[in-house]
Nucleic acid binder design. Structure first.
Lengths: 341, 341
DNA sequence: AACGTTATCGCAAACGATTGCAGAGACTCA
DNA sequence: TGAGTCTCTGCAATCGTTTGCGATAACGTT
């Protein structure tokens, strides 16, 4: 494919019989240029379909106006909602976005970070892989380019972090169950110490404590991969207990849906016998019968907020690195799986 | 944020007391350079963490090694699956990817195309907005940069197009229903002449004809927005008929799920009284009760294939523009919503 | 008339990497 | 010893844009 060259400043200058610098300044409304010249230049530029070569510009100014985004998995609904917010906000502010997937592979994540900085992105937005052992390298990169973390973050990395208020969200969810009169609330969580899981667990514990409910380790179940099948499996475990719980709080929608499937199979009444609350407000939560009560994470807002903070860091000349943690509020969406009848 | 400069060739050259060109050649294993010098240079380059400035390189070579992708909506599961394939394949071949969302807005789509070419992408991958009235502008851009369309395509644009074999997929789906003994099969389609909808409708018609079943216009229902609610609405219409259908083929999973919800509400037996087939194999299709029989679209394969063809066009110097249409095969995933009992 | 001001504009360098060409040694061979 | 050959390296231009600084001309001021 033969890539036809775009119109350049030189061509415009040649055509008009002025210098390249005059053309450049005319196009950017520099006060030194007479309005007559400006009009001429602009007219010709429009006619010849001139568009500045962004490569040359970025090359000279050392600014690419590109943001890099690295996420573990692009096809998670929540992630793609965040990306939507990122794309919107970035476009609004005149930035383009490069997206990469780390596939939850730490090495790949690091490699991508490096390629991106090498490429000259102005800043990076990242949601971390599940495990991170080697923070040192990330810290190195942090020195060269602004970084903002979102969703999956880590306090070992000193930078601005955008998260949802996991703890409060979980707290509200569990309090909602308690408000329905539930007294024995199970939780399905992750065993590995994932940041998010821990926060949600903390909210669960606080809700129980503040309402003076006993904490029973037997109904605090963990799994390595918090998926639909594991949600179902763990619910089967709960059902086989002598003292069944009267509610299940799953820290993931998929696990919650697995739970509902298990309950449906054994004809356990939802929500009367056992109520279920999930976390994410994924598409599926309205598909399952009964519809799932869940925590709505405003992905769009997270994306937009992350971009705002990142651009702020990029454009403020010598500001010290921010280490702020911004917490986005969530809403509990009450549906049939917890509706008091 | 102060962006620290990366190591440059000049710095390496200064340090070693050789010229910039020697360093450049040494790093790219040019035969003119002695192996002693090469080793020296490479050693220092590694030690100083040298990474070529991709902007400068792209600027000079007029190659960015960036692919642009424009999709209507990034958060559709199918789309993000395609994107996964695109990202993987592109990375494999040493390309980076810029993603934009057109939000089904034709003007935005055009604007993004232009920004991308201005930015110097080596090629563009695009899934079209629903309506396209102004093909002329796209044709203009087609002259400047290779373009490959996927999923939502148009025969008005002469370029390589990657689609799933919609017609055959629909044909297979309907034949599956006929194989179960169904004789009166309704279809839920789009009214606007969307490319995909028409193809699927054609497959539907062919299946009926080849099996010598009558075609009844009354059970061929269209809607502008083929969504869950409209699926439910149209199914209600079908249920109110004197002669009810014994199967429903919805050209979208969401519509199919809407259909199932309506059937469930009126306690219509699935699949015995009325069977349902969808299209997409979205996550939801296994969540709904009964699980939905649907056409699996291998998004990943589409993404990878599209990238392959695009890069081929980019890298083959003066090849005539391809106008090939590549059809990716699909699989029918049979689940409870059509299982013969 | 000589000087200062102001409005316009052009020159040239710079950004970092690549590459054709020329030049400097070292070596061989007659 | 001189010419020719070969190996290795440097010079300088190039890509398109931006920008500090200097140049020019026109005009006003004394």
């Amino acid at each position: 494919m033969n890539k036809k060259r775009n119109t350049t400043l030189k061509e415009l200058a040649l055509e008009l019989g002025v210098s390249i610098s005059t053309v450049s300044r005319a196009l950017s409304d520099h006060p030194d240029i007479s309005s007559a010249t400006k009009e001429n230049v602009k007219e010709l530029a429009k006619r010849l379909n001139y568009a500045p070569n962004l490569f040359a510009r970025g090359f000279r100014s050392q600014e690419s106006h590109i943001l890099g985004v690295i996420v573990p998995n692009i096809s998670h609904l929540f992630t793609s909602t965040v990306l939507e917010g990122v794309l919107d906000e970035a476009e609004l502010r005149g930035y383009r976005v490069i997206i990469s997937e780390s596939k939850n592979n730490e090495n790949k994540q690091l490699e991508m970070l490096q390629t991106m900085t090498q490429f000259g992105v102005d800043g990076v937005l990242m949601s971390l892989t599940k495990k991170i052992s080697d923070v040192a390298q990330i810290l190195q990169i942090l020195k060269r380019v602004p970084l903002v973390l979102f969703d999956k973050v880590s306090d070992k990395i000193p930078c601005t972090q955008i998260v949802i208020d996991e703890e409060e969200a979980a707290f509200n969810a569990v309090e909602h169950l308690i408000g329905l009169g539930k007294k024995r609330i199970a939780i399905l969580k992750e065993t590995e110490n994932s940041f998010n899981s821990e926060k949600r667990y903390a909210g669960y514990l606080r809700a129980l404590k503040e309402n003076e409910l006993p904490i029973d380790e037997k109904i605090i179940l963990g799994t390595e991969d918090i998926s639909l099948v594991n949600g179902r499996r763990l619910t089967n475990v709960l059902l086989s207990m002598k003292e069944r719980p009267d509610a299940i709080f799953a820290i993931t929608d998929s696990a919650a849906i697995g739970a509902i499937k298990a309950l449906n199979k054994y004809k356990v009444g939802i929500p009367n016998e056992i109520a279920v609350v999930g976390f994410s407000n994924s598409m599926n939560s309205t598909i399952i019968q009964p519809a799932l009560t869940t925590v709505d994470q405003p992905g769009d807002t997270i994306g937009r907020t992350a971009v705002k903070y990142l651009i702020q860091e990029i454009e403020s000349p010598k500001a010290a690195i921010g280490t702020m943690t911004v917490e986005i509020k969530t809403n509990l969406i009450v549906r049939d799986s917890t509706f008091k009848i």
